[in-house]
Amino acid sequence: MDRRTFIALTAATATLPFAASADILDYTPGLVQERLAKGETVFLDFTASWCSTCRSQGRTIQALKVANPAYGQAVTFIDVDWDTYGTSELAQSLQIPRRSTLVVLKGDQELGRIVAQTGQSEIQALMDTALSAATS
C-alpha cells in the first residue's frame, strides 16, 4: 500500500464512528431481487455481529466508501445477517459457504466473490468491480 492510500484510509477510518451507514440496507426476503430488477448493482455482505473477520471486512468496506463516495452513490450495499439468513433461499441459491462472504451481483450474474478475506486490496478490487458494473 502506498503512503497516500494509507493516509487516506487512516483518515477515513478515524471518521467511521461519525459516518452514516444509512447507505447500507439490511436484507429482507425479496430485497435483492427487487434491487436487481431495478438494474442496480448489488454488493452483498453475509455477516454476523460476533464474527471478527466480518467486522474487519466491514471496517475496510466503510473506509473505502469514505475514501471514494462513488461506491456508495452507485452501488447498493446490503448486509445479510448470517444468523438469521444463513440458510435462506438467497444463501442457498448463491451457494454461500459461510459468513464473511462478499458477493457482487448485477442482473442475473455474479460478478465476483470473496470468502473470509480481509485484505484491503482484495476488497477494493471487488468494490471496483461493482462500481465498474454500476457505472457502465
Rank of each mutant, 00 (worst) to 15 (best):
C54M: 07
V115C: 06
G39E: 03
W82L: 01
Y27M: 07
R113G: 06
L90H: 00
V75H: 06
V32L: 00
V66N: 07
G112A: 05
Y27V: 11
V104Q: 02
A133R: 09
T10V: 15
V32C: 00
A125N: 11
I114Y: 04
T135A: 10
D45Q: 06
Q120K: 13
G39N: 04
F46N: 05
A116Q: 12
V103H: 01
I7F: 15
D45I: 00
P17D: 05
F46M: 09
T135W: 08
D26V: 14
A116H: 04
E110F: 05
A67D: 10
D2V: 14
D26Q: 08
L105T: 04
R4N: 12
E110S: 10
A134Q: 11
A20C: 07
P29S: 09
T60Y: 13
S49T: 12
V32H: 00
E110G: 06
V75N: 04
L44V: 08
A63Q: 07
C51M: 06
T129N: 10
A22F: 06
Q62T: 10
A12Q: 08
E34L: 11
P97L: 00
L9P: 14
L90Q: 00
W50R: 10
C54S: 12
A134C: 14
W82S: 01
A8K: 15
D128Y: 10
T87D: 09
P97G: 01
A67C: 10
R55D: 09
T13E: 13
Q117A: 12
L126F: 10
Y27E: 06
I78G: 04
V103I: 07
L9F: 12
R55N: 09
V103E: 01
A133L: 14
Q95S: 05
D23I: 12
V32T: 02
S121C: 13
K65E: 15
Q73A: 06
Q57V: 10
Q33P: 04
L44W: 04
A20T: 15
G112L: 06
Q124T: 13
F46K: 03
V75M: 03
S121G: 14
